[in-house]
């Protein structure tokens, strides 16, 4: 199971390529935003969000490097959950940073701070920095929205939570850009509160991303039933697998959990049958790779959770 299944190898390669593209494009966005942000809180918060958007891409690439590694003596089940662990850590950081930014921007709004966005001289012309900020924000929206759209179908095919959450966050990035632009236009129109208000909205969107990602990552680490990529409900694919297993062994207790992108199924209270069905018979067409393990536990040998 440590090798990437051949059915998803090409998608997996494409996903890695897209994440490298993400690092490159979003890196350029971060540089452009950094040099134009000035004293705008909305720009600063949008810059934070852009820096944070590099984290899922890095998490994916690091775990994509670890996942195919063979199990070792100390890690006999391999490194399938490396991405879940890294993702949980980064999503908790995302949530707290979002809360911190929301607090800072909320305070800025209450104190009535007037942001100064002054002039900048380019090619001998003095122009208002706000125009450059708006141009930078427009640029900051384009790469993530395209990349997010390209990643989403791949994430569904390879059942990758990190990639999926990353694609959702990127697809929603236009809202950050729009909020930032509204903040800058607000400053231009003499509405000092527009900038802090836009920054507050962006911070709230960071908190929302963080909570979504934390819920998604923690369910797997608690051996929860396989979740849908979107939302926190149990995946339909897992429900169908559970039904098929239950039909075959009506007297057994079926439990499913997730390990990385794979589903691990256990049938408790049943001796290992002589003939075990193939994964193709149990899973949906083209999805057999996802059944990572099917195990049987005879009556009386179940783990402690079974008796509760």
């Amino acid at each position: 199971m440590s090798e990437i299944p051949s059915a998803i190898k090409q998608d997996f390669r494409n996903a890695k390529k897209l994440e490298w593209w993400t690092l490159g494009w979003m890196g350029s966005v971060v540089v452009v935003m950094y040099f134009t942000m000035g004293a705008s809180q909305a720009m600063k918060t949008a810059l934070f969000e852009d820096v944070l958007s590099l984290v899922p891409a890095m998490t994916f690439l690091v775990s994509a490097h670890l996942e195919p590694r063979a199990p070792t003596e100390k890690f006999p089940y391999g490194f399938l959950r490396a991405n879940s662990l890294a993702f949980l850590g980064s999503s908790v950081v995302l949530t707290f940073l979002g809360l911190f930014l929301a607090y800072t921007n909320g305070m800025g709004l209450m104190k009535g701070e007037h942001p100064t966005v002054g002039p900048v001289t380019m090619f001998g012309e003095t122009i208002w920095l706000g125009w450059l900020m708006i141009a930078a924000l427009v640029y900051s929206v384009v790469p993530p929205v395209i990349l997010g759209r390209l990643k989403q179908p791949i994430a569904q095919r390879i059942s990758d939570k990190v990639l999926y959450t990353d694609s959702l966050m990127q697809k929603a990035d236009w809202q950050t850009g729009l909020a930032g632009i509204a903040g800058i236009v607000g400053i231009g129109l003499g509405l000092w509160w527009a900038d802090s208000l836009a920054a507050l909205l962006i911070s709230i969107s960071i908190v929302k991303d963080g909570i979504t990602a934390t819920r998604s990552a923690s369910a797997e680490l608690l051996d929860g039933a396989p979740r849908r990529l979107e939302g926190s409900g149990v995946s339909e694919e897992a429900v169908r697998l559970q039904d098929r297993l239950q039909q075959r062994w009506p007297e057994g207790r079926i439990r499913l959990r997730e390990s990385g992108r794979y589903i691990l199924a256990s049938v408790d209270g049943i001796e290992t049958p002589g003939e075990i069905p193939r994964a193709e018979e149990l899973m949906d067409p083209g999805r057999s790779w996802r059944l990572g393990r099917l195990s049987f536990t005879p009556h009386g040998k179940e783990d402690p959770a079974h008796h509760r």
């Binding site: 701070e113 007037h114 100064t116 002054g118 002039p119 208002w128 400053i187």
Partner: peptide, 17 residues
Amino acid sequence: VMNGENGWLMLVSEASK
């Protein structure tokens, strides 16, 4: 100039050229 008076700051800056 006073913080946030961006139009006024632009005018002073343009006059400085």
